[in-house]
Design a protein around this nucleic acid. Sequence first.
DNA 1: CTTTCATTTAAGTTTTGACTTAATAAGTTC
DNA 2: GAACTTATTAAGTCAAAACTTAAATGAAAG
Lengths: 113, 113
Amino acid sequence: MHAFDVLGDPVRRRLLELLADGERPAGDLAGIVCTEFAISQAAVSQHLKVLREAGFATPRKEGPRRIYSVEPGRFEEVDDWLDRFRHFWEPRLDALATEVARGKKARRKDTGA
Amino acid sequence: MHAFDVLGDPVRRRLLELLADGERPAGDLAGIVCTEFAISQAAVSQHLKVLREAGFATPRKEGPRRIYSVEPGRFEEVDDWLDRFRHFWEPRLDALATEVARGKKARRKDTGA
DNA sequence: CTTTCATTTAAGTTTTGACTTAATAAGTTC
DNA sequence: GAACTTATTAAGTCAAAACTTAAATGAAAG
C-alpha cells in the first residue's frame, strides 16, 4: 500500500499526529479520536491495523494493552517523494550544503564517501 | 480538501510527478496517464480539476490548450505536516543550522531576525 | 477457572469517490 | 460559419473502503 494512500484518511493522520508526541496505548488513541470524529472504537482499531500493516506504527504489548509508536520508514518515503518538488519553494542551496544539511542520501545509500 | 486527500490517489500523484519536471499541456498529460492507468481522457481531466481546485496545479491558456504547472503552496503544507515526524529519522541539527539549511520558518513567518 | 478489561477481528451495510459515455464549450482552420 | 481539435462538465454506474454491531482473543484479577 502506497504511503500516500495510507495518509489519505483524516482519522489515520490524526492518529499519527498523536503518536508524533510519543507512544500511546490504543485505548488512549481511541478515546481521543472516537470523540473527535464520532466513530466507534472498532473503527479506530481498524485504522490502527492499516497503520500497522503499512509500517507507519508498531504496537508493543504491555499487559493487556498495546502501546503504539511511530515507525519512521514510511514517512521518510513520503519525504523522498516530496524531494522532486522542493525546488519549487526551497531556495536552492549548493549541492554540498544540501547534502550536509539534510544528510539524507549520503546516509541512506552510503555512497562510499 | 486536505492536501493528503488529494495526494491519496495514484493518478493524481503521477500527474504531479510529470509536472515536477516542468509544465505540460493537459493533452500531453492525458496521453501518458491514460495508457499507464488504462483510463479515459475524461477521467484525467477530472483529476486535473481536483488538482486545480485544491491548488496543486494551475492551467495557463495557450490557444486551445491548457498548459499545467505545479503550484508549490500545498506541497509546502505537506512538508510542514511532516516536520513533526522528522526527528524520528533526521539527525538533530542545532537550531541555527536547521534554520539556515531549511530556511523555512524564517522566510515564512519572518520572525524579524 | 470464570469474570473483566483492552483490543482486535468478522460480517454486513453504507458511503465516497473514481470511472465511463455523452454532451458542452472554446479555439483554430478553411 | 462548418468542421476539427482540445479540453471540461454532466449524469449515472460501480467498486473500494470506512463504518457499525457483534463476536472472539488474550491478559490479569479475584
